[in-house]
Design a protein around this nucleic acid. Structure first.
Length: 766
RNA sequence: GCCGCGGUGGUGAAAUGGUAUACACGAAGGCCUUAAGAGCCUUUAUCCGCAAGGGUGUGAGAGUUCGACUCUCUCCCGCGGCACCA
């Protein structure tokens, strides 16, 4: 029986902490991962995953909270819809970002990680998200990175990890090399320093081997279109032809222009370029190697080698040049230059006075059809401290050997001189006690790899570990993985389109091919959420516009902040954070509280029933599409209706309130739990079934018909549904309207458009 | 340059081709109160009008349609991705 609780005030902080504690004690968000899926019972496993945060600052800001909350709401909704929801959380705390923060605050990364972990988890608990706290994953935990190292070894054994000397991106500020994907506009993805090119020997993953599968797999998954496009662009498949020009292979996508090729250009890194010994050429190669991309782009430069070759189509002698507008990393590192057709070639030809000749556009050169990709192999090595040591040993006799699996993890030693050196070597290179090892093969003296692996390797497989955290003897259990993966819903920021999301797909495909898992796409559905901005700009410390949630939670409660954040706009678009907005949301929750606490009476009302069922329908659809802003708007309308009814009749059936509270439960989990309890319910609201609507009850007994004359609204009629059976009835009612009569007066009606139950339009002869 | 997403009141925003501006914020007025706050009620795109009513309005312009924020075309502006990729 509902009691009057009018005297109880809504004090968010009290009820929120109470329920957070209770939820954790009763483990309502910790599903039994091993319980076999019983179709009859209908509780499907649903893996609801959000991108885990990297704790690089003092704590999380409302931008982070926005993302986590939006994802949590979806998980709660799915749970109420009858799914067995697994929603884990962890920290991506290994890697450059966390280490850079540690450098900034002058603390050892390991010590800082402990502080960050405590703070982040405290904040995440305070937002009331329904995580399974018994299964967190921290990437810097040896129990986790043991398996990151194991993964490296599997890839090495499969020939997917290899070393090569190549010009690589080097960040002078982070003092390490970076993968192509981590260079944005020639700047470091982390610290925005301009990256340099260095020729170094490094570890790579053969992601290019998967280029076509990474491309084709996109057709099989339900991902935000913009992410798919970004990946497609990054993989950059282009079909073309290799043509042999006097012993030099060139790649072109336009073979039909080959008869217009008036010179040949080699990249300075092309092996053939090194065969020219003239001082001009040697100097040019030297200079261009040290140029930044930006310098190279500013002006095209090159040097004539003194050699000519024959264009096989025209049989004419054409000069061979070396120029750094041709990149070694794409195609064959050599091009046929067709200045008549290609703007870049023309620019170069004009500068160096090379003849420009027309092409027939129908040349048919002898060549081999090939496919080229923009995608490069993934550079894994980092000359840093705070990451998993790459588990490899170099033996002077046997070469590179993987660390035997029983010796994993290769523990990251606690050292005092952990800061990056900038010498092209990791700080661990100063620690013989770490790097001195015996060759696993011949047992002779050997040295360990001192570089650590890229952070993106840590996060490329964490979703597999969440369902397996208790196993120390294996990275993942076959049955667990079979039951829970691939991830049903993955929610995160679109900024990881070509980083984390691409790497995770690659690692999953590799694990699939090695026989460890039976699926090759990790995330069935990916939803890209928008960003919360402040004063028109992305939140960042340098701009000084970071909003921390703690004070708002204290003042208004997590529920108000959650709902407010979701109400700013569509979840996929983000929104602008304003203090005034949260006041309004806080008011709404107080009103709901007052209504649900003061409720009395038993009578149901047919009109209210229709309103309720319509609300259930629209809120359900909104939640499914993650349109939380309109879901909240519909709940507000519903509340307004209930409130109007209640003030008028002083009586309200309790079912209307229960529905309101149930529909609001995933958005505002604490207040609804408390109200549910106050309404006399014993079990948690978060384990209730999502309300269902009856489509028979959606029909209102009154219809609103808009009367138009020549497309302009002249009257709006509310008529009993029973009285309007057809167009004739509507025309009859319309003819009674004085205003409509006035506009139709003396005019000839050309035709009448009638849309049932909506609109009637009289079109006049003009 | 190519690809994608946007542009609607004072503000955040809503609208299966069918009443443009739901829902909220802010503002104005009122009730309650000794007062303040909270709460509640009313008004709030714009122009003409006492009102009834009418005109104009979704970045600009054209088109399709009885009817366009919505579909098509040409532009302008903002944001994001890719790019000496041959």
């Amino acid at each position: 029986m509902a009691k009057s609780k009018n005297n109880l005030k809504y004090i968010p902080t009290e009820i929120e902490q109470k329920w957070q504690k209770k939820w954790e004690e009763t483990k309502i968000y910790s599903p039994n991962l091993d319980k076999p899926f019983d179709k009859a019972q209908g509780h499907r496993p649903f893996y609801n995953l959000m991108m885990f945060p990297y704790p690089s600052a003092e704590g999380m800001h409302v931008g982070n909270m926005y993302a986590f909350t939006g994802a949590d709401i979806y998980g709660r909704f799915k749970r109420m819809q009858g799914n067995d929801v697994f929603e884990p959380i962890g920290l991506d705390g290994f890697g450059i970002h966390s280490e850079n923060y540690a450098i900034k605050v002058g603390r050892h990364p390991k010590e800082q990680a402990k502080i960050s972990e405590k703070n982040f988890y405290r904040q995440l608990r305070a937002t009331g998200n329904g995580y399974d706290w018994s299964r967190t994953v921290e990437t810097y935990d040896p129990k986790y990175y043991k398996w990151t190292q194991w993964l490296f070894i599997q890839l090495f054994k499969a020939g997917l990890a290899y070393r090569k000397k190549a010009p690589v991106n080097f960040c002078p500020s982070c003092k390490t090399v970076l993968a192509d994907e981590q260079v944005i506009d020639e700047k470091c993805e982390r610290c925005s320093s301009i990256v340099e090119k260095k020729e170094l020997e490094q570890w790579f993953f053969k992601i290019t081997k998967y280029a076509d599968r990474l491309l084709n797999g996109l057709n099989e998954i339900d991902w935000a279109e913009k992410i798919k496009i970004a990946q497609k662009q990054w993989i950059g498949r282009s079909e073309g032809m290799i043509i042999n020009f006097g012993g030099i292979d060139v790649f072109t996508t336009r073979p039909e222009t080959a008869d217009g090729a008036t010179f040949l250009v080699l990249s300075p890194q092309h092996p053939k370029a090194k065969e020219f010994k003239s001082k001009d050429v040697v100097d040019y190669i030297e200079i261009s190697t040290n140029k930044s991309d930006e310098e190279r782009r500013r002006e095209k430069t090159g040097v004539f080698t003194g050699e000519y070759i024959i264009n096989p189509l025209t049989k004419k002698k054409i000069p061979v040049w070396i120029a750094d507008y041709v990149l070694m990393g794409y195609g064959t590192g050599a091009i046929m230059a067709v200045p008549a057709e290609d703007e870049r070639d023309r620019e170069f030809a004009e500068k160096y006075k090379i003849p420009i000749e027309k092409t027939s556009l129908s040349a048919k050169p002898v060549g081999e059809k090939v496919v080229n990709y923009h995608l490069r192999d993934w550079l894994i090595s980092r000359q840093r401290y705070w990451g998993p040591p790459i588990p490899m040993i170099n033996c002077p006799k046997c070469g590179w050997q993987p660390v035997p699996e029983e010796q994993l993890p290769v523990l990251l030693p606690d050292v005092k001189d952990w800061k990056p050196l900038g010498t092209g070597k990791s700080p661990l290179a100063n620690h013989p006690e770490f790097y001195k090892a015996n060759c696993p093969n011949c047992k002779g003296p050997a040295t360990r790899e001192t570089d650590v692996s890229d952070t993106f390797l840590d996060s490329a497989w964490y979703f597999l570990r969440y369902v397996n955290t208790e196993f120390d003897n294996k990275p993942f259990d076959e049955l667990r993985v079979k039951k829970w993966l691939p991830v049903n819903m993955y929610i995160g920021g679109p900024e990881h389109a070509v980083l984390h999301l691409l790497y995770s797909r690659f690692i999953t495909m590799a694990l699939h091919d090695l026989g460890f898992i039976d699926f090759d796409e990790p995330f069935t559905k990916f939803y890209a959420h928008g960003l919360i901005i402040k004063d028109g700009a992305k939140m960042s410390k340098s701009k000084g516009n970071v909003v921390v949630p703690d004070a708002y939670i204290k003042k208004y409660g997590a529920d108000a902040l959650r709902c407010y954040l979701m109400f700013t706009g569509p979840f996929s678009m983000g929104g602008d954070f304003r203090d005034s907005g949260i006041e309004g949301m806080s008011r709404f929750l107080k009103r709901v509280w007052a209504l649900a606490s003061g409720i009395k009476g038993k009578d149901a009302d047919p009109a209210l029933d229709t309103f309720m069922h319509k609300t259930i329908k629209s809120v359900t659809e909104d939640m499914e599409n993650l349109n939380y802003n309109t879901a909240i708007a519909h709940l507000m309308e519903y509340y307004n209706e209930l409130h109007y009814f209640y003030t008028k009749y002083k009586i309200l059936n309790i079912k209307y309130c229960k529905t309101l509270v149930l529909l609001l439960a995933s958005l505002a989990p604490h207040i609804t739990e408390e109200l549910w309890n106050n309404l006399g319910e014993k079990s948690s609201i978060h384990q209730q079934s999502w309300p269902a609507y009856d489509s028979k009850l959606l029909v209102e007994n009154e219809v609103t018909i808009v009367i138009q004359v020549n497309g302009k609204v002249r009257d709006i009629l509310k008529i009993k549904s029973a009285d309007v059976k057809n167009q004739k009835d509507v025309e009859h009612f319309a003819s009674l309207s004085a205003n409509v009569k006035k506009h139709l007066d003396g005019k000839k009606i050309k035709k009448v458009i009638y849309v049932e139950g909506r609109i009637i339009n009289f079109v006049l002869n003009s």
